[in-house]
């Protein structure tokens, strides 16, 4: 193995041990939801944001709060409601009548880990304020620009069962999220354990294992993870298959896809695959890393036509066919 890749692999293995410790700490509080916790770690490493879809009561807030405790980062929850204003999220200038000056009051967005609960309940101008901050990693209040803390991770949730009075996120905005996760119910065994843990009235302490500086250092290592040309070609093929399915013998999908994944998808898929390889203790990315994370990266980036909706074909079905057809290196 090349020396630099060997060195990266060794660093990854060492850093991965700490990440596993973080996951163990989270596991003390959160039962099951391994998929959610794993993806939280991916987003944290790859500096991406997550859109979560799941019914209430699946420990989404608890998972994020526990993660923030384990990595010793500031956590803030914002409940999105129809009467929310952008200033309620990013902050505003407050007039002080005593001295006639304006002082800046920073909003709850100035935290490392943000849970934007039910983001589709707030009007589009509030959504835009958040999403712009997510993209730019900075907020302008008045004429002053304030950088957001590092690391900065936003988890936005959408409730799939109550769609009345909601403002669906525009597709262009949804594209800013690295991952979209569908969180499901726990199984019987897990639910029993949840019942035993959570009905005892005891608070389970979570020890901080990491801190923001170490996370940034891990990101540096993650960026150096090697991606072979064949894996890059695989990622490009997957994304192109969503745009030009006919070139991949997927003519059947042509009338079903309105818009395929953007170049941002290629970037996000590569970053997420690197983070996935990091969590598996490898200094290089394999096609399996791409496959494991591919659905979460692509499901909200492939827009289906009315014809697909009429045939009850979702973007998931389309992506499944893409993965089955595109040749794995």
């Amino acid at each position: 193995m090349d020396e630099s890749i060997r060195e990266v692999s060794a660093q990854v293995k060492e850093a991965n041990a700490t990440m596993q410790e973080v996951m163990r700490e989270i596991g003390k509080v959160i039962v099951g939801q391994q998929y959610l916790v794993d993806r939280l770690m991916v987003a944290l490493l790859a500096d991406g944001h997550i859109l979560i879809e799941g019914v209430p009561g699946l420990a989404k807030t608890l998972s994020v709060r526990t993660l923030s405790q384990a990595v010793n980062a500031k956590f803030q929850r914002i409940q999105f409601t129809p009467d929310l204003l952008p200033a309620d999220v990013i902050g505003t200038l407050v007039y002080n009548p005593k001295d006639g000056n304006f002082t800046t009051k920073k909003g709850p967005i100035f935290a490392s880990i943000i849970l934007a609960d039910e983001i589709n309940r707030a009007p589009s101008k509030v959504q835009s304020a958040l999403l712009e901050a997510m993209q730019e990693r900075q907020v302008t209040i008045g004429d002053t620009t304030f950088p957001l803390p590092k690391p900065f991770l936003v988890l936005a949730t959408q409730n799939p069962i109550e769609q009345e009075g909601t403002y669906p996120l525009p597709e262009a905005q949804v594209d800013r999220f690295m991952l979209k996760l569908i969180v499901t119910y726990p199984n019987k065994k897990e639910e029993k354990e949840i019942l035993e843990r959570m009905s005892g009235g005891k608070t389970i302490p979570v020890n901080p294992v990491l801190d923001p500086e170490k996370i940034l250092a891990m990101r540096e290592i993650m960026h150096r993870i090697y991606v072979d040309e064949k894996v890059k070609d695989y990622i490009i093929d997957l994304v192109f298959a969503t745009r030009e399915p006919e070139h991949y013998k997927l003519d059947i999908l042509k009338p079903l896809i309105s818009y395929g994944a953007s170049p941002r998808a290629s970037i996000m898929l590569t970053l997420a695959a690197k983070a996935n390889a990091f969590l598996r203790g490898r200094g290089y990315v394999t096609p399996d890393d791409v496959k494991q994370i591919g659905f979460d990266v692509l499901r909200h980036r492939v827009l289906v036509t009315y014809e697909a909706e009429a045939e009850e074909m979702t973007s998931e079905n389309i992506i499944q066919q893409v993965f089955e057809q595109v040749e794995v290196p």
Partner: peptide
């Protein structure tokens, strides 16, 4: 196989 193919090593 993965290591030999994707780790960039000889």
């Amino acid at each position: 196989l993965s290591e030999m193919r994707f780790s960039g090593s000889g």
